[in-house]
């Protein structure tokens, strides 16, 4: 594995994203922006190419972290194919019964059918731990446009390809016949099935926008300004600096082996409280073990670096990057507006 890693060349033009978990406020604007642009047609109702989960939590699909997939010792792993229930169905509602059928107060607005047991954001704002030292944060997830995509490897029909110009991984809808082996192989479970068109689909990194140097919708529309975006090898870009210079942006579950191109700045939550109500400045609220589960063993060190830079009185390049006073700097060279002014 290590040998492969060293031989592995990142593509010349590979787009990558850094999501700052200190800035994500779980508003799901990214989720909705993606939905309104790409997945608002019949057969796509349950799809959330982007979703934000509250963690610790079972996530979307439910229990995805244990569903398998990815690479192990150079071999492709086939994991579970998540069901629509596990993703969370797109509930329809009994509007007519409530509004127009003369049911007075006997009907109330709710999802049709049996009470759902899960939804794509069912455990929002829950997390783990015990009050007042409970902890949670938000984890936005999209397709990672991996450099070693398990989905691509798994497709028996070669219907998944990686674009040369930007490394975006796309399902070719003309070739896909719906075997769903990609669902099984993707360890992040970010592939969906279009029930109207009988094909698999997933995040396409908004490549039509990239072609116009416009950042993906989830990046550009995020009000939290939580996402940095650019070419992974652009030494002047924020992504490169955060991933390679400062090394504070970490991949999610690197052990899956797919070499994801989405990275995360780990979160720092408030100080814990002692049983007597005094503040413990030193004990981390999020157990380090949990963060290591997500981001690997380097996460503790990353938190230290960020803390140190934040305490500096003088200029810190890292803080300047994470603050990004100019919003456009976060997505260069994809900072062009979709519509030119004037």
């Amino acid at each position: 594995m290590k040998e492969e890693k060293q031989e592995m060349e990142k593509m010349e033009k590979q787009i990558a994203m850094v999501i700052d978990l200190n800035k994500c406020i779980g508003c799901q604007t990214c989720t909705i922006s993606c939905k309104r642009l790409w997945t608002n047609e019949p057969g796509m109702e349950y799809m959330y190419w982007n979703i934000v989960n509250t963690v610790p939590g079972e996530g979307t699909p439910r229990g995805w972290e244990k569903m398998g997939g990815g690479w192990k010792d150079g071999n492709l792993n086939y994991g579970k194919i998540p069901t629509e229930e596990e993703f969370g169905k797109a509930w329809e509602f009994n509007f007519d019964e409530v509004y127009y059928k003369g049911n007075a107060q006997k009907e109330h607005l709710k999802p049709l059918g049996d009470r759902p047991e899960w939804g794509p954001n069912w455990d929002e704002d829950k997390g783990a731990g015990q009050f007042p030292n409970s902890y949670y944060f938000y984890l936005p997830r999209i397709c990672n446009h991996c450099s070693k995509p398990a989905c691509l490897a798994a497709c028996p029909l070669k219907a998944i390809y990686k674009r040369e110009e930007d490394g975006v991984v796309v399902h070719d809808g003309d070739k896909c016949k719906g075997t769903r082996l990609c669902h099984s192989a993707c360890p992040y479970k970010k592939v969906y099935f279009n029930t109207a068109k009988n094909m698999s689909q997933k995040c396409i990194a908004c490549f039509p926008r990239l072609e116009k140097n416009v950042a993906p919708a989830c990046v550009r529309q995020c009000p939290g300004r939580a996402r940095h975006f650019g070419y992974i090898n652009d030494k002047e870009g924020q992504v490169y600096k955060l991933v390679n210079d400062w090394k504070v942006a970490l991949p999610l579950h690197p052990e899956f082996g797919t070499e994801p191109n989405v990275f995360y700045i780990p979160p720092q939550l408030p100080a814990k409280l002692n049983p007597d109500g005094t503040i413990d400045e030193n004990a981390p609220r999020i157990p380090l073990g949990y963060l290591e589960e997500l981001f690997g063993s380097g996460v503790g060190n990353v938190l230290e670096i960020i803390k140190k830079e934040r305490e500096k009185k003088e200029y810190s390049e890292l803080m300047a990057l994470l603050i990004s006073r100019k919003w456009e700097d976060m997505m260069k060279p994809f900072h062009q507006p979709p519509v030119k002014e004037g």
Binding site: A90, L109, P116, G119, N121, E124
Partner: peptide, 8 residues
């Protein structure tokens, strides 16, 4: 919006 909560 309701789908990203619990529907009720």
């Amino acid at each position: 919006m309701l789908r990203l909560q619990r529907g009720e």
